[in-house]
């Protein structure tokens, strides 16, 4: 089964690699074992997420890659909003080495 999954993946790893690659070596050391999430223990969003993981690792990877920057932008903007209220200049800094 995992072999079939990999074969159907086709040109996508090439595209992923070209987009950026500096962690390739670490990735290749991961073992090729299929792990299944035990969805019986969950309810709600976590159940959906566990099922999503079990159904397709490709879709899971795609969703993870989309959700992480989205969460980063959201949380970053929120933290930015809080920081903008502490009364300091957040638009410039002096460039000084010593």
């Amino acid at each position: 089964m995992p072999l079939k999954k990999r074969q159907s993946f086709g040109w996508k790893p090439v595209l992923l690699f070209l987009s950026a690659a500096p962690l390739l070596s670490a990735a290749e050391t991961a073992q090729a074992i299929v792990i299944v999430a035990d969805s019986r223990k969950f309810q709600g969003v976590r159940l959906l997420w566990a099922n999503f993981y079990n159904e397709s690792h490709f879709h899971f990877a795609l969703m993870t890659t989309l959700l992480i920057p989205l969460a980063g932008v959201l949380l970053g903007s929120l933290a930015d909003l809080v920081m903008s209220r502490i009364g300091i200049n957040l638009k410039s800094r002096s460039l000084r080495e010593g």
């Binding site: 987009s19 950026a20 690659a21």
Partner: peptide, 20 residues
Amino acid sequence: MISGLYGAATYSYKGRVDLV
């Protein structure tokens, strides 16, 4: 950031990322 995104893609494809 760019290399981390690639890492996230490749590791989650291998099923080794817990998004929670």
